[in-house]
Design a protein around this nucleic acid. Sequence first.
RNA 1: CCCCUCGUAGUUCAAUGGAUAGAAUAGGGCCCUCCUAAGGCUUAGAUGUAGGUUCGAUUCCUACCGAGGGGACCA
Length: 585
Amino acid sequence: MKQLVVSLIEQSIATLKQSGAFDTDLQANIQVENTRDKQHGDLASNVALTLAKAARRNPREIAQMICDHLPAATEVSKTEIAGPGFINFFISQDATATVLNSILELGDQYGQCQVGADQHVQIEFVSANPTGPLHVGHGRGAAYGASLGNLLSAAGYKVQREYYVNDAGRQMNILAASVWLRYLALEGETMPFPSNGYQGEYVKDIATALHKRVGSNLKHSAAEVSKDLPADAPEGDKEAHIDAIIDRAQQLLGDENYQLLFAAGLDSIRDDIKDDLADFNVTFDNWFSERSLSQEDQIERAIKKLQDNDHIYEQDGALWFRSTAFGDDKDRVVKRDNGQTTYFASDIAYHLNKFERGFDTVINIWGADHHGYITRVKAALTAMGLDAERLVVKLVQFAILYRGEERVPMSTRSGSFVTLRELRDEVGKDASRFFYVTRKTEQHMDFDLELAKSDSKDNPVYYIQYAHARICTILAKLAVEDMTWDQTQGLANLQLLSETAEIDLMQQLALYPEVIASAALAYEPHQVAHYLRDLAGNFHTYYNAHRMKIDDAALRNARLTLSSATRQVLANGLQLLGVAAPERM
RNA sequence: CCCCUCGUAGUUCAAUGGAUAGAAUAGGGCCCUCCUAAGGCUUAGAUGUAGGUUCGAUUCCUACCGAGGGGACCA
């Protein structure tokens, strides 16, 4: 419809140029937008305002000229000039109602579009360290990434969803050591738990499972383990203390048994995260192991690539990437003087790997605490001869948790956090998903657990689901009143849908494909959430004002057809957000 | 000190540079002999401060104030 109006305006301007009223070289940038206020018609263009300067006339005069020369179109019932020079278009009821044909024909495909043009996009998100269960802080990134993936798919992109498993770093060794100490305790070998170890109950659970499986095979005496360890905090250095325990574990257990221990922690937590996310309706196509990078020499290869391009230098025994040449604040170490590559080096290799897999666009969803990495990662990509523009980093601001007035402190290490699982149990999957994804990612958000738990009516997701369920119930209970719904008859009688509420609802339904395209291009699923809220509101208003189960068969069929189309769009939108569309509530 | 994000009704959030800044909740007042009142109607209420860019700024730029997060040969 927008396209039609644009072309009408184009034709009018062309006519005016031919008649000499406008200069032939006048360039018109024709924008047509949906009006916010129905008094301004259905579509509006500001073209006259933008032409005012070039044409040296006042905007209202130009608008009048354009209106006078618009070709006739049955879809447009009326045009008006308003305000400073807007041209408002009123769309006929007939043209509006045709959207119901599309919706019912396309079903769950309605709203899909091809703005993605089959481009391959990878979305990497969550990627939390597998050192403990996900907490509510991860929930936002999970909800956003999953919804974005669905949205981009609907918009015609080929999407791969990936989780980067940080299974290579020191934190994983700390986890292994933590599991070991809990395991030893089960064997009666107790020693003080390191202040820097992972203290959560889940570590004990992993130890218990491990103990059940391997018996005493990993046992060493507490005296042996704790002999000559550097002091823990507060007297000593907690980092040196935990590192010494890790070294001790590797010495005493040997490589094979240490790997067994390590894998027990990693596998258990990764599987748990996988289940946790699946229950949150978040699934991945690929779980990418950081360790696979070093096993396949990809890190060395990435560093070599930077070296070949002359962006690496040696200083103080370490290898540095000259990222300042690409706008970074300081140069970054990729290989330490002890020969170990840094986390950043893994990141470079990982991103090189991603681009080598042939994605047109690579999207990283990162927590706001990672913003400092954007510049350096993009610098590395550029230095390796890749187009850094193809890496899109979306930062997700933290959700600040409240319990009523009180702020909930969050810390993984101390084990004092609200897990995502607890949130789901308390608030519910649908409400949590919707709550997270209703805000745009840049917005800092307050998450009040008390509010979310205590009274679920405060959450608009139920309002939308309720609209869906209402329609389902109406259709399901027709038989009780000896009534039928004939969709073909309904579509043949769409001209009967002339109430304001009906026209508003149809117009809202017609907007859905635009919302999908717009939300996808902006990477903003929250647009869909807000749209659904509005759509549900339109339906509730309609429902309260007019009856659908009525004796007049023609009108009944038409109204039920409209309701059914509304149900379809609500279901399609909720599906994108990973929220259920219940048939009754 | 430097960098990033954000400041909009009492509260939680919207608003491709456009017309009278929208919802939801909380507060006033109404609507179930009627398809689900988890609903509807109605009323009241907001752009942190100061400049700039222009026909027009919540939106773009600068400074300041306030909130959150970064600034390792840690991951």
